[in-house]
Amino acid sequence: MDAILQIVITGLTLGSMYALGSVGLALTYGTMGMFNMAHGVFMTIGAYASYTAATVWGLPLPVAIAFGILAGGIVGALMHLLVVRFMLSRDDFQTTIMVATAGVAILFQDLILKQFGAYPFKQPVQIEGMFRIGNTVIAYQSIAIMAMAAVLIGAMAWLLTKTRFGLAIRATAMNQNAAKLMGVKTELTYLQVILIAGTLAAAAGILISSLASLSPGMGTNPLIRAFVICVVAGLGSVTGAGLTAIALGVMEAGIGYYFGARYGFPVMLGLVILVLIFRPAGLFGKQGVIRA
């Protein structure tokens, strides 16, 4: 029983970080058919920006977190304005944008490496302490992670489903030309989507670095998980990505507990491939929605 509770807590913590990392990716793909290879670097940027704000500038914790999140959004927006914007109307957008964003990813990774060095260090943005339920130890940090993920994802869900702004995004995702004909400024919508994705990724990066540590390559691991999560959910399904993230987080925690941490991801990936053999468009995806 204790083991199960421990797995569930660990899994939910992992899952909520994964969810935060993957909904942004799903949103960008769903709205503009763009697979952002730089999404992982947004996470790294968020983490390092928070670190800098807290340690170097000595700002209070909430401000440091806000600064990190904002930094991710700004870098995302810049990438859109300087690169993505000019490629949107190309026929082979889906593939060339992966190449371009891979370039952005390696550029920023190298810049961070040059600025902060390769040696990993501790993220100061965290809450110490823990409490117990029976024999299960629960860190306050885990609770904080789940709460922050829930708040941010909840805010995004509200934005997408209840506001005019979200309506524009959903309409653009469903049918870009029709949205234009309704007066939706799709160019602006794309910018906003990347901005949101950047902030969510940065938030995920801050949380992930608070459990592990800061390193220039820290974004790769969660990015690959986000890839897998989006693929299982069906590319572009935002709700699906959130749910899948939680499920895979719990599953990975279980596999890690019983077989060792290094098998968590491989077993997950094996299952994913199995899922895709039977549902090539993912669990929540529809073949029709995907752009060929």
Partner: peptide
């Protein structure tokens, strides 16, 4: 310039094949 601003100025196109928002 551009479809969104033309639509906002009152020039409306009902496109071929309807182009509805299918999930709405």
């Amino acid at each position: 310039n551009g479809a969104p601003d033309r639509a906002r100025s009152g020039l409306i196109l009902v496109p071929q094949g309807d182009q509805l928002f299918m999930a709405m």
